[in-house]
Design a protein around this nucleic acid. Structure first.
Lengths: 124, 124
DNA sequence: TATTGACTTGGACTTAGTCCATCGTAGGAT
DNA sequence: ATCCTACGATGGACTAAGTCCAAGTCAATA
């Protein structure tokens, strides 16, 4: 555990954080100016491998890193401003996929993204 | 309707096609060698706006373009080789999100990606 | 002290996509 | 038939996001 890794982990601390790698780098640089981009990517990759952080690709742009990895949840994304909320729907989406629709795959995960407009963007 | 647009539309014809923009460009170039990258992106963008084609971001890499836009469906992706299948789960995922989890959003869409291993990759 | 090995660094590189000035062409006006 | 105009196409430059790599640093061990 080096200073760099600690800083990256600290930056990602919190309940409803969905930062891009560049945002993580910016916040990490505030605390440890000499940290490099490569180290941020390396550390994020390790955290993902360890299962401490989840990679979320909500928009086809930069990936976001979600430290809320131990509580299963899905994401609600505003199509207007890109705001992201964690949500906890009822029911397991995996059970909605019947065996006849699995084509022999070993299905292990269902990722759900709800899209819509947040209250601010719905007004405008 | 120009020759270029027709070629892009032809390339995307089919039921279970999930091509990246570069793949569309490559196939289009086979038929019309002087077509440019910008035209492919422009045309894909128009098809998406028209609702004829759906943009799918299954992997955080290149977006894929799915012409099966008129039949609601979800995607099953192999974590090993990236293969994509269209699937039609039972039940509407939107109805799994209770009002208490909507945070005032106007939710209009739910995008589900199932992940797992295809038969080939599960063997290896 | 010297060696080892893991981690970090900065910069070059790659991929995916966008932007823009210019060019070509089809269709309408004269 | 010729000229105009406007839209679409072109290619090249540019940006964003991410990866790769050779070299440097540092701490623990022999």
């Amino acid at each position: 555990m080096t200073a760099q890794r600690r800083v990256v982990a600290e930056v990602l601390d919190g309940e409803h954080v969905h930062l891009t790698a560049d945002e993580v780098l910016a916040r990490a640089t505030d605390r440890l100016p000499e940290i490099s981009r490569a180290t941020v990517y390396n550390t994020l990759g390790e955290l993902v491998t360890l299962g401490e952080v989840i990679e979320v690709a909500t928009d086809g742009r930069a990936k976001r890193y979600d430290p809320n990895a131990h509580q299963p949840h899905q994401h609600l994304v505003c199509s207007g401003c890109g705001a992201i909320r964690d949500v906890h729907p009822g029911g397991d989406p995996l059970s909605d996929l019947p065996a006849s629709e699995r084509f022999g795959f070993t299905v292990s995960e269902a990722e759900v993204t709800y899209r819509g407009l947040c209250p601010e963007c719905a007004k405008a």
